[in-house]
Design a protein around this nucleic acid. Structure first.
Lengths: 336, 336
DNA sequence: TTTAGTTACGTAAACGTTTAAGTAATCCTA
DNA sequence: TAGGATTACTTAAACGTTTACGTAACTAAA
């Protein structure tokens, strides 16, 4: 009736449960004949071990929790993909947590993950508040930050150098001959993806002897709608510009569409470079030149690091700055 | 040292574990004073219940497993988003499983889910092979199919009527005055999203007295690259056409880009309608007219149904055909 | 004042594993 | 051929809960 347990197997094979457990784990201490008996019983009963019971005694669940501000974003799901891939390879399951805007559900989810006894946590794309840090510390499991970081605590992270990548993007535009370069930035309050990217842009201008013009930067919120508004403002109010750096692909695409609606040709009338290299950057027309963040790989790395921490016990933490690269497609044009 | 258990709380409050358990669950059988004592002890020790131990005795883990062929697709992640939302609301966690191409890992994952004692499963976007069905049946937990179905077994599903939606898309093109309508179909072997959509297209043509021209349909594999090839073939070999129905947004976008590369203007020279209404349909330029599948809502419905099945025990199964709708954007134009 | 009923607990078994410790038989080795 | 070492097991505790059952004290009705 009920699913067979190890006890049923033991009874059927006429041995003790300890013996069954040992043959199932390939430990020593039984004859070949008993092994046969046990295997046969397992087969006949269709026995499957119960990971919950196992977890209780081992204090290990082979499960990790992953927190995203928005699971359904292309961004998050690429990271998730990488995390899941390595996790499953190493025998871990992943519980996904959508913390929603403003991390409204973060604390609740941390609580759930604690009760469920996950072995580790990946925390992505959001700033790690003190409150979160305390909660995680209390649960005594390793954490890895992806696409975010904190200077305040020693927590390993995996991310690209946003400032440097933004510098790269802007410098590329300059090398292509552009000098009037606008930017659509994320919100400045965002210490991770907002300020550093703007700063990189500024630095690139400065290093090339181009004056920074405040009215040429507008602020979006990393997603489409905000960017469309920002672009309209730029088109209406900013001094003319021949190129645009958008701090996310989604914003680049929003800007592109309003540019096209204004009758501008891309890249002939306006060059645009994005940031992220989401799958859709390749799909739109013309395909978007952008800064590639290896999201899936970052997910893989985070997963790998986390599982190492889980299995070796907290050895030293090591963060990774992964390198971005610029992928040239068709939205940037050399200025003669 | 170790995290406090219910025993520690009991000791600290000077009562039995049974009493602690009772106050924690708001059951009857204790005085107000003991309640205070227990609560204080819980507070002071920072006690958190262990869901693993609880799961062992209750035979309930408050966890569901969700299988996707590709978690990182926009399609899957929208569904996941809906599933997660309801799950968390109802106190369930979700384990994501990426079954990879060809369901290579499906069996392995079903095994994991079984060992981990999930309370239910949602199976998405893939055909449910007999092998899978047997495995799930053996684990005696409810399943819900999303975006797929099987006539062979009584398993509740949530999906749109692909045939009807394809009919709708095609008919819309016809109402707009088009009569030379090409199609980029998924592979015919796909009994879920392949054949039915082609069939809907055919039926719409027939009902409007338009002859079906085999050479006007090309086959992609639902994703970008295949579609680009298909579109090139169509442009080169098919009799001229003024409109195109693509069986997925991704294919529509692929087709759009090759059309644009050929110098065709959309929608002036060619009208295109897609299928799915992925987020990016709205983002590209011009925004894609397409069939909207309410993916997030489908995820929510599936989650809701599944949890009902889990909590009420298998009552009757009920499937849902959810209604698609056509969203008019800017890639279809009336033919004068 | 007895008795039945209720309240407020405590005891202990159960969930399905893993594993340390124990035991009996067999095998070497000197 | 006695002694220790090895092999092939078994027993039972432990993991952290929930919950059926037992029981003592108190309450209320007759």
């Amino acid at each position: 009736m009920n699913p067979p347990t190890i006890k049923d197997v033991a009874k059927a094979a006429d041995v003790s449960v300890a013996t069954v457990s040992r043959v199932l784990h390939n430990l020593a201490g039984y004859s070949n004949m008993t092994k046969q008996k046990v295997m046969r019983a397992v087969e006949e009963l269709g026995y499957q071990p119960n990971a919950i019971a196992r977890g209780l005694v081992n204090k290990r669940t082979q499960t990790i929790g992953v927190l995203f501000p928005d699971v359904s974003s292309s961004f998050s799901s690429d990271i998730l993909h990488g995390i899941e891939e390595i996790a499953q390879e190493k025998g871990f399951s992943v519980i996904v947590c959508n913390t929603a805007e403003e991390g409204k559900r973060t604390m609740k989810y941390l609580q759930v993950l604690r009760e469920k006894q996950v072995d580790g946590i990946v925390f992505t794309s959001e700033v790690l508040k003190d409150e979160y840090y305390q909660a995680i510390k209390e649960m005594r499991v390793p954490v890895i930050l992806v696409n975010t970081m904190t200077p305040k605590y020693m927590i390993p992270y995996v991310k690209v150098d946003d400032r440097q990548a933004a510098y790269h993007a802007t410098d590329y535009l300059i090398q292509k001959g552009h000098r009037e370069i606008a930017m659509i930035s994320g919100t400045l309050k965002d210490q991770i993806a907002g300020f550093p990217r703007l700063d990189g842009y500024r630095q690139a201008l400065a290093d090339n002897g181009i004056e920074y013009t405040e009215s040429r930067v507008a602020y979006g919120d990393f997603v489409l709608e905000g960017s469309r508004k920002a672009m309209k403002k730029l088109l209406a109010e900013a001094p003319p510009f021949t190129a645009l750096f958008a701090a996310s692909d989604e914003m680049a695409i929003g800007a592109m569409s309003v540019a096209m609606e204004h009758g501008l040709k891309i890249p002939d009338d306006l060059s645009i470079i994005g940031y992220d290299d989401l799958k859709l950057a390749r799909m739109i027309y013309p395909p978007l030149t952008t800064i590639h963040q290896p999201l899936t790989m970052m997910g893989r790395m985070a997963s790998e690091k986390l599982i190492t921490l889980i299995e070796e016990g907290s050895t030293q933490v090591s963060s990774s700055i992964v390198s971005h690269h610029l992928v040239e497609r068709q939205t940037v044009r050399s200025k003669p």
